[in-house]
């Protein structure tokens, strides 16, 4: 093996890679179910890094033994925290999945862009404003409907 490469280094690279991949998936994925999966992956990386913070290469598992000299143990406190975090993570996952089921019941789709569009339309309808004004889509993404006459007049007057 290459000198300088330790077990801690490999584990840190794995944990950071999992967190980065998970966050990139949360930001970049276009399907809401993939977003939940990316969240699960990022959580796995965070758990690995937490357990790694209490790791010592020359220590044994944190189990007390009735012996005269107790050998050095790895830190049991992060392990207890991670034990809780795993269970809470599954709870969060179940909540996210139930929210996904409700979204699909309401909008019939899980594509991020379509769900956002329908949500925009609903918010605009409930607030009583026109959606063409409230949306801020980049040019070329969603073709805007032609502007009404009075809006075109006021724009021309401003310019």
């Amino acid at each position: 093996m290459i000198p300088g490469v330790t077990l801690e280094l490999i584990l840190y690279v794995t944990a950071l890679g999992l967190v980065i991949i998970g966050l990139a998936g949360v930001v970049l994925s276009s399907h809401l179910f993939r977003m939940v999966l990316a969240l699960v992956i990022a959580e796995a990386g965070a758990n690995l890094m937490l357990v790694l913070s209490g790791y010592r290469w020359d220590a044994v598992a944190p189990i007390l033994m009735q012996r005269a000299e107790q050998p050095a143990m790895v830190d049991p406190v992060p392990q207890a925290m991670v034990l809780t975090a795993i269970v809470i993570g599954v709870g969060i996952q179940a909540l996210a999945v139930s929210i996904l089921i409700r979204i699909r019941q309401r909008y019939g789709n899980l594509k991020r862009r379509e769900v956002a569009e329908k949500m925009d339309a609903e918010i605009a309808a409930s607030a009583g404003i026109r959606r063409d004004i409230s949306q801020d889509a980049p040019l070329g993404e969603r073709p805007l409907s032609p502007l009404p006459a009075h809006t075109a007049e006021s724009r021309g007057g401003d310019a």
């Binding site: 758990n47 690995l48 357990v51 598992a61 944190p62 790895v74 993570g89 996952q93 999945v97």
Partner: peptide, 26 residues
């Protein structure tokens, strides 16, 4: 990896809950 890092309790929970129950839910 948890079992390798001498955290056997966390490894058991992760294998049962994280790999089993979570993928079942999904």
């Amino acid at each position: 990896l948890f079992a390798l890092m001498r955290a056997p309790d966390v490894a058991m929970t992760e294998a049962a809950v994280g790999a089993g129950l979570s993928s079942l839910i999904l």
